[in-house]
Design a protein around this nucleic acid. Structure first.
Lengths: 342, 342
DNA sequence: AATCGCACTTGAATCGATTCAGGTATCTTC
DNA sequence: GAAGATACCTGAATCGATTCAAGTGCGATT
């Protein structure tokens, strides 16, 4: 059975194809009676419009591409849900690509998005793709950067003040009586990581505290945290920090596991604070304090910026939404029942 | 700047559009020299083929739809990665829909997938969509059920032997000396939940153990586990089970948190075993034993079944791949350093 | 009765890649 | 050197929804 097309619908309803199209798009005035007949025909034939034809004619699709850094990190799936929920309101849908921090895969998805003529693109870039993004935009697909604020001048973006986040984390640890802080993070080349560490250093300096000890790892996964715990355990009691600031929650979970497994009491001996506030840190056996980034809201904001650019392609005032991170205190830094979500 | 099309490429390369198409699709014999010129023209113009036009002509897209139950559950994102990795090999891409266990959203995505003429569909159905799926298939988009085996006769499917999983969990708890088991799960109307509980009951019965105490919750999230912990704590010491079998790992995490928070020692006082083996249970402060489902492999298998049907649409022998679950022992059931991944 | 305005409808042209029957040049073979 | 085979190339027709200039019918106005 070949799928019905507008011509079949028009024939059955006794109208022209133009009228069917008008009904489908609720655009022009169509008399209620006619509309009714067309809808009945659509229903009877089980007609579903061929989006490829629509797209070919109109020149653009109703889908928006979202290139995610790592789908296995709940932080990014939370952003994705914000994007999806918002797109639904705009009657558009989501084409999700997962670069997995791989520049090659990223390029592959960019090709796909361009072949699809996506109406817009949200991306947390991995490789050096800015020229590519410029081209996409020049061809009618606006681009919004998510969780990146480099090259702020040429693209709209949504980001979080990572420096402030780092400061909040360090200040909280100092406020709760810690004196010696270690930072466990991914490569310093990642701007977020550098900013978070930088913010922590600012806080330490302004309070005259001991300098930040930095342990650097390749990937921001739990395994890095476990390695970090080992390195901390290898230090003499005098050298060992009494607080850990992890660049993200996956690392924090790894550290927690490594330390408690070795009999270190958290937070009594060593406090731990993470970053992102993914739900799993609240569910950890010792709930982990974290710096909350409003993931869902970031997704929504990015989508709204994108829709604004789509609706007004002429405008060249690229906007930057910067969210404020927020300290969430849990037992991993204050112990007992004293913890309160903040 | 209007994007270049095949005609522009053909003109620049001094060939016909047909030849450009042949180069693009590497199908017919094209002389190396001509091919070179065409590729050069493509490069110079920055030509990217318009997939809508391709799709309109060919009648089908190169994308496969995947309708996920809950993107925030790592189990499903792991399946999605298996799907994505496999599709990449087949040179196709993924259109991801997240029903969030909402039948309404599910229908919305089915419309979208049908408008897009996806070349196939993977779905963990929520609502009563089988007639709809039949129609999709009759219109050229084969369907494979993921993690469901109801209506096994009319669709290919990939699933896991949940009954065996339940038995493995219960037997492991009995083997480690537990005598009184509680099952914390979602609504019994979900087949997976019923099967897992059923498998556990089988094991208890065949060993002559005490019957399974079942606590039922609405959603399979960590919050349910916390509530379950409260209910367990409210029982008198005599009544309280010495082992918990959680229907999924999110629940297990919640139980663990609730129990340890109240000072109950895990596993000494109460052992906990979860289901799915998401990575976060291994990273929990007390790593949780679990029943592993091979998520990535399920994604791959489902995709391969789908591709087989796409390549041979005539065949009506629907295949069913049933994976075996696997016990993974961690500290939440055996304590100390004795745990070993199984 | 003629004219105009309004509301609704028509249908040919269009988007761009693919297809495939048919064309041309070059090479083989007897 | 003629017939046939081979390799490569051409370009008009096609997919199906949308667009928009043009058309139709009907009531209101003069």
């Amino acid at each position: 059975m070949a799928a019905a097309n507008v011509r079949d619908v028009a024939a059955l309803a006794g109208v022209s194809v133009g009228t069917v199209s008008n009904v489908l798009n609720q655009s022009k005035h169509v008399s209620p009676a006619t509309s009714q007949r067309v809808l009945a025909a659509i229903d009877e034939l089980g007609f579903i419009r061929n989006d490829a034809a629509r797209q070919l004619r109109v020149g653009q699709s109703r889908t928006v591409g979202f290139m995610v850094l790592d789908v296995s990190n709940p932080f990014f799936t939370d952003i994705a849900r914000g994007v999806e929920d918002t797109l639904t309101q705009f009657n558009r849908s989501l084409l999700l690509g997962n670069s997995g921090e791989d520049a090659g895969r990223e390029l592959g998805y960019l090709d796909l998005f361009e072949e699809q003529r996506v109406s817009g693109l949200l991306i947390t870039p991995v490789g050096d793709v800015l020229p590519r993004l410029e081209r996409l935009r020049s061809r009618g697909s606006p681009v919004v950067l998510v969780d990146r604020h480099e090259n702020a001048d040429s693209f709209s973006s949504v980001s979080v003040d990572d420096r402030l986040g780092g400061r909040l984390a360090a200040e909280h640890l100092l406020d709760t009586g810690r004196t010696s802080l270690a930072f466990l993070g991914g490569p310093a080349s990642i701007l977020q990581v550098a900013d978070r560490a930088g913010g922590a250093r600012d806080a330490l300096a302004s309070r005259g505290a001991a300098p930040l000890r930095v342990l650097e790892f390749d990937a921001m996964r739990a395994e890095a945290g476990r390695q970090g715990a080992e390195q901390l355990l290898a230090l003499s009691a005098g050298e060992r920090p009494d607080a850990v600031f992890a660049a993200n929650d996956l690392i924090a979970l790894g550290v927690l596991q490594g330390l408690t497994h070795a009999g270190v009491r958290v937070p009594d001996d060593i406090a731990i604070i993470g970053y992102d506030d993914i739900s799993f840190v609240a569910d950890a056996a010792i709930p982990i304090s974290s710096i909350r980034q409003p993931a869902w809201e970031m997704g929504r904001a990015a989508t709204e910026l994108l829709m604004a650019e789509i609706d007004d392609p002429g405008a060249h005032d690229y906007r930057h939404v910067v969210f404020q991170p927020e300290l969430v205190v849990r037992e991993s830094t204050v112990g007992g029942g004293a913890a309160q979500a903040g």
